[in-house]
Design a protein around this nucleic acid. Structure first.
Length: 577
DNA sequence: AAAACC
DNA sequence: GTTTTGA
DNA sequence: AGAAAC
């Protein structure tokens, strides 16, 4: 295994020769390769912005006058595109000495150049005023100078230019009366959010008590209310009463809420010891509703009780040891030979402590014990600010490109839906030309995880899926996409749950849609596809039910288009509480 | 708990 | 009245 | 079997 044919050429130090690739020096035969190499710094760009930039470069990479090409390495770039405006921030991604040799422009330069059909002067688009002059000097435009004068950065307004589609286009065919969440606009916080929070308590209680069916009904009702555009009052009850998923029982709940400002059952539940305990227990990784109920039945009420329960549980000393020590037990994870030089800006992560050598080797079975989960709890129960999500993403992208240049990645999950705090970080990773049938995807996944582990960035591996070739007959298996569920830590930081999802090229956009959520939004996408379009949708692909034909979308909007749905921006997919 | 189906 | 509800 | 993900 480990088909590491192209030992990481890595993006950083050019190091040894690498005669293989077209080295942009026109020297090798034919045409002086005139394609303009573009390096995009993903930091500070939203996932959508990154996607549209990539799309832009792609579309124009086969075009006459404008001939762009993505490059995985800033060193090879003819132009560097970034939304970062500060030196310190940029230095996290690009060496300063290198930055001075390149034009560093904002995304608008790319958008506007494409619109104009020619390479525009860089002057007005310098990302860092500090590097304005260098940027102008190194600008790839035919002949520049037309800039200067306008030393101001007036073009900020053009930021809205964006690519033709997505960003602003909150499509017109959203319909808050639809019975599918994927046809409605569900903001992060709705006008009736307090009512939603009450219903969510009942819903959660149903879930904890294993009443799936009731929980599902509350999911649907909550989804309807999340997208209902008016503040709920007595005089709107009729209208609400006629909404799908809102039946007699839900109406009575709503009436009670309108009368008393709350719902009694929700209060009772929220105040109950049982609810509080079950809810707390499920914060532990590996503890779901069923285990929580068992713990409660065993007499546990608080985490201290659970500590005792598992701590004392000497059902097997040896096991206990293994879980706890996570100390020097380095099961040789290697088979990897890329150990050599760590050429990245060296120390930067001068490990805080011995990076706890995890205990995984290559766990086929996700075996994190409750004991380990208890140790991680203090860190993992802290929410993650958006800033840090971006930092984590930047580090992972950097390492990813060292392992396999040319990879693309998108932050998905709650972050992408606009949440200011996230429970974890979800990243979908793809590569424009990885073999569709997967072997390489698997290799990429384990190689990245090993690299992150070696550098002390990953401390635990909750789960590493085995690879399964994309099997159309059995789509939508949890394991149909390669996944690595990790505990990740920035040097000196709090440990965070980071999920990496690896998608083959043809599954990239469905994976992005499938992992952006929310849960109810996803459920209804599938229902819509099945019930209205005779299609089968899931994060691994979109297929025609009649003949099993695989439809391959080329962008996220394309997924919606193929499903016959209006575009719903990620921030309006918050159909859950 | 609500909707779709028979 | 029975089946389906994401997979 | 149960828990994990959106």
């Amino acid at each position: 295994m480990s088909p590491r044919k192209r030992s990481r050429s890595s993006s950083i130090s050019s190091s040894d020769s690498q005669p293989r690739k077209r080295q942009r020096s026109s020297s090798d035969g034919s045409e002086p390769d005139k394609r303009l190499k573009v390096y995009i710094v993903q930091a500070k760009l939203s996932a959508d912005e990154v996607a549209s930039l990539y799309a832009l470069v792609d579309h124009h990479s086969v075009n006459e006058s404008l001939d762009f090409e993505l490059t995985p390495s800033p060193r090879d770039a003819d132009v560097i595109v970034t939304a970062v405006h500060m030196r310190k921030r940029l230095e996290r991604h690009i060496d300063w000495a290198l930055a001075k040799e390149k034009p560093i422009v904002t995304p608008d330069w790319l958008f506007n150049s494409v619109s104009a059909g020619e390479l525009l002067p860089c002057g007005k688009f310098a990302a860092l005023s500090e590097l304005h002059d260098e940027t102008v000097h190194n600008c790839p435009d035919g002949d520049d100078d037309s800039d200067t004068a306008a030393s101001s950065p007036p073009t900020d307004s053009l930021l809205h230019l964006r690519s033709p589609s997505q960003e602003p286009a909150a499509s017109a065919d959203l319909d808050w009366k639809s019975r599918y969440a994927c046809c409605r606009a569900s903001p992060l916080v709705c006008v009736n959010q307090h009512l939603v929070s009450r219903l969510a308590i009942i819903r959660r209680s149903r879930e904890l008590e294993d009443d799936k069916i009731s929980a599902l009904s509350y999911d649907h009702a909550i989804g309807m209310i999340k997208s209902y555009p008016y503040e709920l009052t007595e005089d709107r009850l009729n209208e609400v009463n006629s909404l799908p998923h809102i039946g007699p029982k839900m109406i009575s709940r709503i009436e009670e809420y309108l009368d008393n400002g709350d719902i009694e059952e929700a209060e009772t539940i929220a105040n109950s010891q049982r609810y509080q305990s079950l809810e707390a227990f499920t914060d532990l990784y590996g503890v779901g509703a069923t285990t929580a109920r068992k713990l409660y039945a065993a007499g546990c009420r608080t985490f201290e009780d659970v500590e005792r329960y598992y701590g004392v549980s000497y059902e097997d000393e040896a096991e206990e040891e293994a879980d706890l020590d996570d100390g020097l037990k380095t099961e040789e994870t290697d088979d990897l030979h890329l150990a050599s030089q760590h050429n990245d800006r060296a120390s930067q992560h001068n490990d805080r402590k011995p990076p706890r050598p995890l205990r995984f080797a290559k766990p086929k079975i996700p075996s994190i014990t409750p004991r380990v989960a208890l140790d991680l709890r203090d860190d993992l129960d802290q929410r993650i600010p958006r800033e840090e999500v971006q930092e984590i993403f930047a580090v992972i992208v950097r390492e990813l490109n060292a392992v396999r240049p040319g990879c693309v990645a998108t932050i998905v999950g709650g972050y992408r839906r606009g949440k200011s705090l996230s429970g974890d970080v979800d990243i979908v990773i793809g590569h424009p030309n990885l073999s569709p049938t997967g072997k390489q995807v698997k290799g990429l996944s384990s190689r990245l995880v090993e690299r992150l582990y070696e550098r002390g960035l990953v401390t635990h591996l909750m789960y590493l899926s085995g690879f399964h070739a994309p099997d159309v007959t059995r789509a939508a298996h949890w394991d149909a996409l390669e996944k690595a569920l990790t505990v990740f830590v920035l040097p000196g930081g709090v440990r965070r749950r980071v999920d990496l999802i690896f998608a083959a090229p043809e599954a990239y956009w469905t994976a992005v849609v499938g992992w952006t959520g929310s849960k109810t939004f996803e459920r209804d996408l599938r229902r819509w596809a099945a019930e209205q379009k005779e299609l089968k949708f899931d994060s691994t692909g979109l297929t025609r039910r009649s003949n099993g034909e695989l439809l391959v979308p080329t962008s996220e909007e394309d997924v919606f288009r193929l499903l016959g749905l209006g575009w719903v921006p990620p921030t309006l997919r918050n159909a859950d509480a």
